Simulated assay, not measured.
Amino acid sequence: MAELESHTISSGKTVFVARDEVERGAKGPFFIVYSTEDAESRWGYRCGNCDSFDTAMDTMGRVECTVCSNVRKPEEWDAAHE
């Protein structure tokens, strides 16, 4: 099992970043973040470009950092959605 880094976010909650679980973004990687230390419950992403936890995902699976605009393209893309 991967080693997780614990971080306390602005709400006071502790989350766990898996530095070895990444998804490619335009400006830097997105690291998978878990809400539990055993990595059973996925919480979100941490932007590898600016280290922010403030990310958003849309219904197509596109992830965007709201601080630096780092973007991960959707896993499945359909031109009909443009």
Rank of each mutant, 00 (worst) to 15 (best):
A2M: 09
A2E: 07
A2Y: 13
E3H: 13
L4V: 03
E5R: 12
S6M: 11
H7C: 05
T8S: 05
S10H: 14
K13R: 09
K13F: 11
V15M: 03
V15D: 00
A18H: 14
R19L: 13
D20R: 07
D20A: 11
D20C: 12
V22W: 10
V22E: 11
R24M: 09
G25P: 02
A26Y: 11
K27F: 08
P29G: 07
F31H: 10
F31M: 02
I32E: 02
I32T: 15
I32D: 06
V33M: 01
T36M: 08
A39C: 01
A39T: 07
S41A: 13
Y45H: 10
G48N: 02
C50V: 02
D51I: 04
S52Q: 04
M57R: 13
M57Y: 08
M60S: 13
R62K: 10
E64Q: 12
E64M: 12
E64Y: 05
C65Y: 02
C65N: 03
C65V: 00
C65L: 06
C65Q: 04
V67G: 00
C68V: 03
N70H: 03
N70P: 02
V71N: 02
R72C: 05
R72E: 02
R72S: 04
K73Y: 10
P74W: 05
E75I: 13
E75F: 13
E76G: 13
W77A: 11
D78R: 08
A80V: 12
H81T: 10
E82V: 12
